Computed example of a mutant assay.
Amino acid sequence: MKKALLVVDYTVDFVAIDGALTCGEPGIALENHIVQLTKDFLAQQQPVFVINDLHEKDDPYHPENALFPAHNIRGTFGRNLYGKMHDLYSEHSDEIIWMDKTRYSAFAGTDLDIQLRARDIREIHLTGVCTDICILHTAIDAYNLGYKIFIHEGGVASFNPAGHDWALSHFQNTLGATVIVN
Rank of each mutant, 00 (worst) to 15 (best):
K39W: 01
L5V: 02
S158E: 08
L81H: 12
T22L: 02
L37H: 10
C23F: 03
L136G: 03
L145A: 12
I51V: 13
G19R: 09
S169E: 09
I28G: 11
S90N: 15
I149F: 03
D100N: 04
H125S: 04
V48W: 05
F107D: 01
G176E: 15
F171A: 02
D94G: 06
M1R: 07
E153Q: 06
T138S: 06
K2H: 12
L175Q: 06
P26T: 00
D13F: 01
L145Q: 15
P26S: 07
D120T: 07
G75M: 09
I97R: 05
P47I: 06
D165L: 14
R103N: 01
E64C: 10
I97W: 15
L88Y: 08
G78T: 15
A29H: 01
L175V: 04
D87I: 12
Y10R: 00
A20D: 06
K148R: 06
M1F: 01
Q115K: 14
G24M: 02
H55G: 05
I97P: 00
G24H: 07
E153V: 03
K3L: 01
L5W: 01
Y147W: 05
I73T: 09
Q36I: 03
I96V: 12
F150T: 08
S90A: 15
N32L: 12
V15S: 13
K57D: 14
L168C: 02
L6H: 05
T178V: 13
D87Y: 05
A142T: 04
D120H: 12
A142M: 02
T138Q: 08
H86D: 14
K101E: 08
N65D: 11
L126H: 05
R119P: 00
D53F: 11
A167N: 10
I180S: 10
T138C: 09
L116E: 02
D141W: 12
